[in-house]
Nucleic acid binder design. Sequence first.
DNA 1: CATTATTTGTCCGTATGTATT
DNA 2: TAATACATACGGACAAATAAT
Lengths: 245, 245
Amino acid sequence: MPDLFPPSQPLNEPLYIQVKRQILDAIRDGRWKPGEMLPSEQQLATEFSVSQGTLRKAIDDLVAQNLIIRQQGKGSFIATHNTDHSLFYFFHLVDDQNRRELPQSTVEKIRTRRGTSTECNRLGLASSSTILEIRRVRNIGGSPVINETVLLSATKFGDLKQRSEELPNTLYQLYQEQYATTVGSAVEGIRAVGANEDDAQALNIEIGTPILEIDRVALDLDRRPIEVRVSRCRTDNYKYLNVLE
Amino acid sequence: MPDLFPPSQPLNEPLYIQVKRQILDAIRDGRWKPGEMLPSEQQLATEFSVSQGTLRKAIDDLVAQNLIIRQQGKGSFIATHNTDHSLFYFFHLVDDQNRRELPQSTVEKIRTRRGTSTECNRLGLASSSTILEIRRVRNIGGSPVINETVLLSATKFGDLKQRSEELPNTLYQLYQEQYATTVGSAVEGIRAVGANEDDAQALNIEIGTPILEIDRVALDLDRRPIEVRVSRCRTDNYKYLNVLE
DNA sequence: CATTATTTGTCCGTATGTATT
DNA sequence: TAATACATACGGACAAATAAT
């Protein structure tokens, strides 16, 4: 006989965690859009029937996850991917003086094709699903620095192909604004490899030159994979900066 | 006439920040040693003449910085560098199944010499200070993977040379236990480079093979530089894993 | 094995300070 | 100036985990 009341979540889960989940759900469901202001803490506390302190603790967590921005005297806002913080949170190349500059992108190729089993698996799609592949070269200070391949679900992002000419430099912002998909975290594997013929041509270097390969899976707020991105970078004048604290 | 009451810190600095600084000072001054238990929150609140809530907020910050570990029912403890979390917080190489394994180290050379101006500068030392240089090869699964050079202030860490035979794999733990110096953060610059003759011999690869160079400055709790470390890694069977969240 | 004391975790309500509009 | 919103601070109550009795 099946359990009619399966305790899938512990019944004694802390209130502030429940509140946090409710706020997350509301964000996901589009109740508030990126950049929009939330109701005041007082109002939210009343709405969720908790004290201000409990509500603050829920918001504290979301602020720590960079999903909400608080500003004293103004209000709390849904974070967007067009702030400096968010832009550079996912972009780590700096020059020798540790200066960051967002690269300009040139789309080389954009097409749909069947994904390999590995690719589909990494994107959380069924085997041999159709995927969208974007290849672009990213320039800093006029010089090509990154040879990049981006893979997406064609089902979800298929109409991106029609506007390949107007693709912005900051794709995560596009996903958020046009596809209601917020990239909240990512996992990267970084290797040193030799430039292949394509890299050599794109980056204006010799075949075999050591380059940095960054292989990243970007995840949404539910930690479902959204995008696979392989960035192959010259690191003679730039480096990948990582701050551990 | 000099200002007798220079407001070096804003007078209206939040209480919990002041408390946090006092606790930090106490840790630095050795009032509690790594692994030791702090007094209870009640006691600390009384000692600092603040409410429990204010003290909790101060500790919250220190927990977020991984300097204090809280355990419900037991107490709060000064964090040590011998926990899995701390060990792998500063070690990022994983195999193709994303498994982590701490490498075994073999010291190749250890000596003192005058530092170059760049080296002294990065270590926060006066020009042409004497520095301690440790060169070692780190093996995973019996194979050499990392060719590493470690630079330290010879004034502070000079007697390390006498015990080069018994150097542990985890130097940060040694700094903490034997030199009362806790590494709290680090800044890394990562590049792809070609193996030089020394790398080739140490890592059993051809000269010119692409390898990953991780150039790290480790900082103490006051963000003063403690150690400069250059790790040159094979990434054919391993990769640098970075999780952004 | 049950009880009790200790410690952190959660939650509440209120008051006051500070930044913004 | 006044209203609004978040930030800080206080103190108390109960829950949950742990360790000792």
